[in-house]
Design a protein around this nucleic acid. Structure first.
Lengths: 163, 163
DNA sequence: ATAGAGCTTCAGAAATTTCTGAACTATGTT
DNA sequence: AACATAGTTCAGAAATTTCTGAAGCTCTAT
């Protein structure tokens, strides 16, 4: 533990996983940095320095992470530099963002059902697809609810610090 | 309904959604074609014709769809052309394929926990991340089980007929 | 007010992904 | 056995994504 080299290597590895998952490259690296830093909050400059990226690239990454709600801007301590940090519910948010993908699939299926005739193979197939995504969408709220309960009931990794 | 133009437009639209979700472009278009065709099975040639794509591109797309288990090769009727069709459980498979992504996140978190010291902010953050993905992974089997039950009990979520 | 640090935007460069076309392999037909 | 059709592979072309660097804007402190 406490292996500085291993830490950033692990961070970059996580960034790759996030990229596969659909995040843009620099956004993924930035998110990983937020996770692996020991600072309570970081500035754009610090991110750029650690990732060896231009200010422009960092700016874009922060913008997109803010947009999807994974990080938040801290009420400025009073200074020139903006401070950001990972949001408390970042993981649930990241997971939930797939709801929109599921809804999009549902819509696509519905559109297909509209333009095909009842009984046609395509119509049947699309109906099954719609059923699945409808089911999935209906299950998600309960799943997140169980997560919050699970969290409340003080499981492992419990001791939070505040700031 | 039964609008040939609208049908393929809807198919291409679904392909875009699938692409956002991480599928390669041609694989996504091919999968959409499998969904929207009225044929019970299709050949590589038919796909290439409909999508106006080269045989090489189609070959690659089929290969990758087979690899993730979304389509299957039909026991050749006896001929030269290979026939393929969408697998019955394609949607559950597509959904489940995210399990590997979740496992990858879990592994990345674990790696980070290894190289940080207990009590460090990063260590705490990574622990919370691990907790979430552990929870998620544990929930998935139950969710798929409920889907299969839901399916059995024949409620096709609406006014569709069965076949 | 002015200076200057930090941030954003954007055009063009660089890197990556994706597709085509042609050569090659395999298989069924005559 | 020879031919022809279906499918696969792969190098290079095309398209797309992503990043840099520079210009411009904003806001704090002097």
């Amino acid at each position: 533990m406490d292996d500085e080299h291993g830490r950033w290597e692990a961070a970059e590895r996580l960034a790759l996983v996030l990229t596969e998952g659909g995040l843009q490259r620099m956004a993924a690296r930035t998110l990983a940095m937020f996770l692996f830093t020991d600072l309570q909050s970081v500035t754009a400059g610090e991110i750029g320095e650690r990732l060896a990226a231009s200010a422009g690239a960092v700016s874009g990454a922060i913008k997109s992470l803010l947009a999807v709600g994974l990080i938040e801007r801290l009420p400025a301590p009073g200074s020139r530099r903006e401070h950001y940090r990972l949001r408390e519910d970042a993981w649930a948010t990241l997971f939930t963002s797939q709801n929109t993908a599921i809804q999009a699939m549902l819509d696509a299926a519905a559109a297909g059902i509209e333009v095909t005739r009842t009984g046609d193979p395509a119509h049947e197939r699309l109906s099954r697809m719609r059923d699945f995504y409808e089911f999935l969408l209906a299950e998600l709220p309960g799943l997140l609810h169980r997560w919050h309960q699970h969290q409340q009931s003080g499981q492992s990794a419990g001791q939070e610090e505040r700031r």
